[in-house]
Write a protein that binds this DNA or RNA. Structure first.
Lengths: 258, 258
DNA sequence: CGTTACTTTGAGGTCCGTCAAGGCCGGTGG
DNA sequence: CCACCGGCCTTGACGGACCTCAAAGTAACG
């Protein structure tokens, strides 16, 4: 709504794909200069999304996917009963909207959790371009395949893991994703609320809050509001791999019975 | 549509794509005869898998996806701790192995739950062929997009839904998939064991057993071993949409504890 | 400084997992 | 035919993890 911000940010909007650090979808690596400029031409740079602004809404027609240049988003769907379930968080450098490729319609909504810059990639043109670039052709499949794999990971955890492991897994997952982008991985800011985390993990807000407190008093993390500091990333990672019955405490005395 | 299956299995193997009822991946509909024969050439028909035989194993290199002609499969992965988690069931007409597209390696194993006929589709050749057929190009993305969507559905349920809703949802999901292939949808055979179902849904074997018994005494279903009869599909569908807090029982007045 | 949204903390209830024992059924061998 | 066996399934009692309800504390924003 605030149009005067555009002027100051237009310099950002003009950053070409050469400078853009997003490699997931746009830069398969083996691209030559010619392909890169071609890609640069089809990618559309939108103006920044303010916090709380929609990138897209469930039910809208879609002919694109989006690459998140900076900032973070959350996506969610509304169940037939009217409950909102957070389905994902997207950090700088990640790809949003793949699920709409199924039938050209968004099945969920996405909004900015903070100011976000997004590149729109029309899927039709991307595919046409990718006909000439084998590496690009595989890249989209790779991204979707990885998405499938991640979802199966989460699904495997969802039931078997228990709340502490689930939350710990969430934290190290965030950490890993920041690390992949070259950002600090032990100290970062949670862009989402406790309620968002709870909804995403299928826990309650209270349980998330309690567990964060517990992790802190165990010395695993430090949290102040949304500033998060992973003090023992290895221990957290270990905790994430425990199921309900498995490991009660950071250190298990007798671990083998074979 | 039952031919003389006894004559020789090779007769089945020689069924061309024209006759094959699988439309998910192979037959985008808009294909002309030329494309269909081209597709027919790249699809490789394997010999039938006996019950318990592997289609592929986790860790194997992969350059293909598979279309299930007849029979059923299950897929599972082994956690770092050594536990086996069932990740999916595949019925006649469905596509298996998409997750391997991420990095060309299978992340899970798949075996036949009964005698199964499978078509192998080398992904490289499929893509090359699809360059000339726009409809095919979109088809693979569609299938994967739908897969993404289904996984998100399951994930949304996994935590929020509670065991009865989860199991009910599983049953109607199976029913829908049979219906989509033109098979009986309210009476069919469960190709998998209770333990498989439990692992897949993240429940225990005992809970699955108890709930099936409960559903039966509520008149929702009839089960004898693995023969399943959905007596009130609508009620089951309704039950599947209830969360823990939501709907206690089909009928409030007469469902008191005995 | 007041309002609102978010977060923390506590107490009680319940669903479902764990442990344990017993049935059903097909297969195998006497 | 029966006895025995092993896989699969059923049924029961118990306890714990996490949800629900409730209220107070804190940060964000005008």
């Amino acid at each position: 709504m605030n149009d005067k911000t555009i002027g100051s940010i237009s310099s950002h909007l003009e950053v070409s794909c050469d400078r853009c650090g997003i490699s997931a979808l746009c830069l398969p690596g083996e691209m030559g200069d010619a392909e890169r400029t071609a890609l640069n031409r089809i990618v559309q740079r939108a103006r920044p999304l303010r916090k709380g602004a929609f990138l897209f809404r469930a039910g809208e027609r879609s002919d694109s996917v989006y690459a998140l240049r900076t900032g973070s988003l959350k996506s969610w769907r509304v169940t037939p009963e009217g409950e909102e379930h957070v389905t994902g968080f997207f950090l700088t450098g990640e790809v949003v909207g793949l699920e709409s490729l199924a039938n050209g319609e968004h099945t969920q909504s996405a909004i900015a959790l903070d100011t976000a810059l997004v590149c729109r990639i029309p899927i039709e043109q991307y595919e046409r371009l990718s006909e000439q670039v084998p590496a690009m052709r595989r890249q989209l499949l790779k991204v979707m395949g990885r998405e499938l794999h991640d979802l199966q990971d989460r699904l495997a955890d969802a039931r078997h893991a228990g709340a502490p492991a689930t939350l710990a897994g969430f934290l190290v997952n965030l950490s890993d994703r920041y690390a992949r982008r070259g950002l600090r991985s032990e100290r970062f800011n949670l862009p989402m609320s406790r309620g968002d985390i709870a909804s995403y993990l299928g826990l309650t807000l209270e349980t998330v809050s309690r567990l964060l407190a517990r992790f802190q008093q165990q010395g695993l993390i430090e949290v102040h509001a949304r500033d998060l500091h992973l003090r023992q990333p290895a221990a957290l990672r270990e905790l994430a791999r425990c199921n309900l019955h498995g490991c009660p405490s950071p250190r298990a005395p007798d671990s083998l019975t074979e």
